[in-house]
Design a protein around this nucleic acid. Sequence first.
DNA 1: TCGGATGGTTTTAATTTGAAACCATCGTGT
DNA 2: ACACGATGGTTTCAAATTAAAACCATCCGA
Lengths: 153, 153
Amino acid sequence: MAKRVSHRDSMCGVARPLDAIGDWWSLLIVRDAFDGLRRFGEFQKSLGLAKNILSARLRNLLAHGIMETVPAADGSPYQEYVLTEKGRGLFPLLVALRQWGEDFFFEPDEAHVLLVDRKNGLPVRRLELRAQDGRVVGAEDTMVRLPAGKGIA
Amino acid sequence: MAKRVSHRDSMCGVARPLDAIGDWWSLLIVRDAFDGLRRFGEFQKSLGLAKNILSARLRNLLAHGIMETVPAADGSPYQEYVLTEKGRGLFPLLVALRQWGEDFFFEPDEAHVLLVDRKNGLPVRRLELRAQDGRVVGAEDTMVRLPAGKGIA
DNA sequence: TCGGATGGTTTTAATTTGAAACCATCGTGT
DNA sequence: ACACGATGGTTTCAAATTAAAACCATCCGA
């Protein structure tokens, strides 16, 4: 937690979120939350991590406003963990991660889960970054503009 | 490295990439590589991490085929680290991370770097996930379809 | 041939992680 | 009322990881 940030990362738009997600367990928890999991035990069973670690990660997600606890849901006396709006904002990131995984981590013939449109069951399109005029742009077509002129951040 | 994966993550399209990126330092290295950094010393200065850690991370990125070394570039007798196609495939993920950061980690009046179109300097659009028919879809509109029918993965 | 720049590795301490044991609360059965 | 299992954690302690610093090697110009 509270990872050390480099001298220039105080202003960096990439490092700041990384500090909040902290580690990959957190992102897997968020993924499971998108899948509808809400209870401590559900996350633990799904991810197979130690309870103390899950506890720490959930605490961190709560502290960063990515998840929140709600008092009940089905009458149980326990609390449940649900995504906040900030947490739901991670959806594109998860999709990007998933699509990258599909592209490079599965053999061509290897079956893998597919993200599909709920309406008709068809796979979703690939994420594309577009310029204001609608052109699809890649990394080569973009640059970062600095607000005041310091590092390369 | 070689993080333990849960019992079901062998098939999960999200956990697999996470194993390759490993930790957030790796992603910051990739980000810097997109920014044009290529040399060991450049990464070290930019990120401010210990040299042994940078060394280990670069080794891991090489092992996963995310970066590769090229013999020279400007005559120096040293090697340089550049992104492979697989590494360049991380661009949408970085954009997603950056946009999420812009949304939730900066005060409304706080200046921050902006990803802009190189052609005209205008900010790029937000990433949007679209269905086959072009509709913009959110998390609620999607689900994962399993290849054979097991867990919820 | 000295000395600095570059690109690492080794060594050692501090932090984090993880497994297991432990504990507390609630609900149920009897 | 009381035992007991399920749930949701915390504590303890060993193992792995990370970080800082020191060290080492190579190339290069003066």
